[in-house]
Simulated assay, not measured.
Amino acid sequence: MDVADATTVGWAAPGTYLHRLTEAARDELRAMAPRRRAEPGDVLIHQGALEHHVILLHGGISKVTALTSDGAEALLAIRVGGDLVGEMSALNDRPRSATVTACTPLAYSVIRRPHLQTFLARHPAAALALAGMVADRLRWANQFRVEFTAYPAKVRVARVLVKMALAYGRRTPAGLEIGFELTQSELASLCGAAEVTVQKALRDFRHDGAIVTGYRTVTVTNLDTLRKAADLHGAL
């Protein structure tokens, strides 16, 4: 199923919180609060806000960003249907550490912390799944820091493109189109590279026939070639 088709059908991508739950727990959590809709650019969570609910994404794609000490916006992660966001403030009673913004039309629900706590007490396996999700996100962040220092910028750009194409790609006659608008500055932020470096890497990948680019879109046309550039050939 294409991510772009997920807004109205309650799709849960592998690795998301909903995907980790039993069918009964998944249905209960989905029915816990009324669904809302957001359009691209709508902010679901504001960095620094003193609030403690979580947001369950039923479909669509959102991005997680944070302001750095020099005022720049850093892209931290992409979240899709089935993901839970805002869990850190719900767990540790601290202000929001990041902003969550809709990248595509999406469906979501707001789950208040007392309701989440009751749900987790009633479903111990769901509490373990939440802990596992938080651990996986921490592991991803640690891996990102390792790759930031261990690999050249061009390799990091290729790795991010491979991961996003496999996780969020929409199959088209040309290849896997990353299913949301992604600016070069956002891609640079996610890769930990300068924007001019990302521009050069994309130009090289286009020349090698690995990708084609359009206005804020990237389509992976040769996944094997991009995997080789990412030093991932045969690893995925």
Rank of each mutant, 00 (worst) to 15 (best):
D5V: 13
L21S: 06
A24M: 02
P14F: 09
S69M: 05
R96S: 06
G59E: 14
G86Y: 04
H58A: 13
R20K: 14
G41R: 11
L84C: 05
G82K: 05
A13H: 09
N92S: 09
V64A: 08
E28A: 14
A13C: 11
A72E: 12
G82P: 03
T99D: 03
W11D: 11
T118H: 13
P105K: 10
I78D: 03
T8A: 12
Y108K: 05
D70K: 00
L106R: 09
H115P: 00
H52T: 10
L50D: 10
Y108R: 04
L44E: 05
A107T: 15
L106G: 05
P114E: 11
G81R: 08
L56Y: 03
A4T: 13
S62W: 00
K63N: 14
S69R: 14
H46K: 10
A66L: 08
E87A: 12
P114H: 10
Y17C: 04
T99V: 01
R94L: 12
V64G: 07
R30K: 11
E39L: 11
L120W: 08
D70V: 02
P95I: 07
V100C: 00
L76Y: 10
A72M: 06
L75A: 07
A49P: 00
Y108G: 06
G15L: 01
A74W: 12
